[in-house]
Nucleic acid binder design. Sequence first.
DNA 1: AGGCTAATGACAGTCACTGACAATTGACAA
DNA 2: TTGTCAATTGTCAGTGACTGTCATTAGCCT
Lengths: 216, 216
Amino acid sequence: MPAPGLRERKKQRTRDALIRVALELFTEQGYERTTVDEIVDAVEVSQRTFFRYFASKEEVAFAVQHMVEALFVTALEQRPPGEGPFDALRHAVLSAWDHAGEAISEAVPIELYLRTFEMIESTPALLAVHLRRSAETEETIARIIAEREGLDVDEDPRPRIAVAAFSGVMRVTGQMWVRGTDQSLEAIRALTERYLDHLGPALAPHWRNSAPGDTP
Amino acid sequence: MPAPGLRERKKQRTRDALIRVALELFTEQGYERTTVDEIVDAVEVSQRTFFRYFASKEEVAFAVQHMVEALFVTALEQRPPGEGPFDALRHAVLSAWDHAGEAISEAVPIELYLRTFEMIESTPALLAVHLRRSAETEETIARIIAEREGLDVDEDPRPRIAVAAFSGVMRVTGQMWVRGTDQSLEAIRALTERYLDHLGPALAPHWRNSAPGDTP
DNA sequence: AGGCTAATGACAGTCACTGACAATTGACAA
DNA sequence: TTGTCAATTGTCAGTGACTGTCATTAGCCT
């Protein structure tokens, strides 16, 4: 790909600036207390321009998150076909977290991403959108799994069910991560492994026995 | 409880009318295409009054759904202590569906509830709120499960993990239900059983073997 | 240089939602 | 029954997200 023209570069810069400023303001003063006018004033574009780049005030908050999700989907698509469904999912997340740092830092400082994640989880309006986006991603993932196994998602419910259970655990992981003390990418990777290991036992008929010591 | 005064009865009637009219308009012309003004004009109250009964336009859409969730939580709390966590969850949903019909019809016609559920699933803004509400319910449920097992939700991750997996399957169930042809309470009860039965096998290392014929 | 088109800005308007204050209306005691 | 109190409702003005429209600007390409 040759160097994009001045026009394209300008657009990219405007978009990046909007994301950067928005996330900074959101994390500093809170999402609700930040108006779109504040963002566009800081970037010196009109409000109309903001809404040409982002369909809503919410959308700009998920720009980086969007990349990380794409990373996971790509990782899943590249898992070897021999791997069972659940192993493929497991290895795909872990691989995604391994490459997330690099990918994120090309857009914004990692630390800003972490604070953004925290803000999303603690802002009701954003949490709602986050969950809906996740649900959409689940559908994509279920289709990938179905294809790996040579199944039709609309005939066999197992792809969607497995993905739903898996995603549920991922959600709890993210939730526990932001509530914990160690908010680093290494920490969420470790938590991911730990929580996935717990899924099997958690579905057992009784819990009396297995219970490794755990602190979220 | 003695007969509530005129004031209370009037409030209840206004609230019911708002819910009824709102759901009717939402399901007929769509959520986004219905304005709050249309609702309050039909009920003949001021817009301000609407927002005194409901914090947002979204909230009125979940009034009935709210009851069903409460039904489930109550059912779970009444499961015998001997039952394992997953069995308790399973029996609680099934019991909730058994009593849902009666509970719902006290508020609105069942058929209106079914159409509302469909609308929620197909309206992005409402789906987002629905998922957030479900996430909140999950937390409640996790605490109940933890208590049943004599555990601390913040020490042992299994309650949250089990509930997350369970809720994920419930979500898929609801989703498949509204997409299917038989939209009755009996149908979703049957789907619930079937999908829960699939959870174990779906998490197995390989799917080669078990696969009952399925049409969602 | 000059025409074409994508990108932006300016402006007016809609809709959800909120705060403040006035008007109304059950509740309840004298 | 009436008068007082407090809850409920209505009115009004305002904010903030978002959209359609149209004029203006500014890369792009010959």
